[in-house]
């Protein structure tokens, strides 16, 4: 170790080479220097169910969400009810979800709110599928970024038959059924009050 602190010409060359090498790597990496995370495009998903089984985490980092401004708030929510269940009630045997993760709340006559409990949801897409077939397609799957460990190659992405996964910048990590986050928020315009006698005229 006699030359520990000695700096010679070859060191300069080495340093230059190293810097040049780092610089070149940086240059080719383009201007997309934001960190990236995985997300799935709910409009491409075909609800195959692999999101549950193919994530390296158990339960999966993929969860179901309800985009409320598309939801019909249906009484007969087929995303909620087992098809063929006689009674519309909250009995577990009547629920479609294998983990009973969907919570049904009465809003007003004939309208119910459906919220998915993230803790219990395993991302199986059963309800997404049902809502797509029979309802308004307001349920959708999404990688929850607080759970996902952001594998370098997402193992669901590789298995997804509909190629729904992509990498997104960390600053904009979610995808929605209708586009950007703003589009999920639209509240309906207020209903004008009707004159009481409107129905009786003529």
């Amino acid at each position: 170790m006699s030359d520990w602190a000695k700096v010679d010409r070859r060191d300069f060359m080495r340093a230059t080479a190293a810097l040049g090498f780092a610089g070149a790597a940086y240059a080719v990496s383009g201007d997309k220097i934001d960190e990236e995370v995985w997300q799935l495009d709910p409009n491409k998903c075909t609800q195959c169910g692999r999101c549950t089984t193919h994530c390296v985490l158990n339960p999966s980092a993929v969860k179901c969400l309800n985009q409320f401004n598309i939801c019909g708030y249906c009484d007969m929510c087929f995303g909620y009810l087992q098809p063929g269940s006689r009674a519309i009630d909250t009995g577990a045997e009547n629920q479609l979800c294998p983990t009973a993760a969907i919570k049904r709340t009465f809003i007003e006559d004939k309208y119910y709110e459906y919220i998915i409990d993230e803790e219990s949801c395993i991302g199986c897409a059963k309800c997404v599928n049902a809502c797509l077939v029979f309802g308004n397609a307001s349920f959708y799957l999404q990688i929850r970024q607080d759970i996902c460990i952001n594998c370098n190659e997402c193992s669901i992405a590789k298995a997804c038959p509909s190629d729904a996964f992509e990498k997104r910048p960390i600053s904009d990590p979610y995808m929605y059924l209708t586009g950007d986050l703003e589009s999920t928020r639209s509240t309906p315009e207020p209903e004008p009050a009707l004159p009481k006698d409107f129905f009786i005229q003529q």
Binding site: F68, G72, R144, C148, T178, T184, P190
Partner: peptide, 30 residues
Amino acid sequence: AAMSGAAEMRFPPPDFYSAYTLPDLYMPPP
């Protein structure tokens, strides 16, 4: 269904007579 679903997307939710407002989606940041 996945393909024809797009047309239904813009359909607004019901008008609620009660004071219910649509909840915002909870989106935890990475």
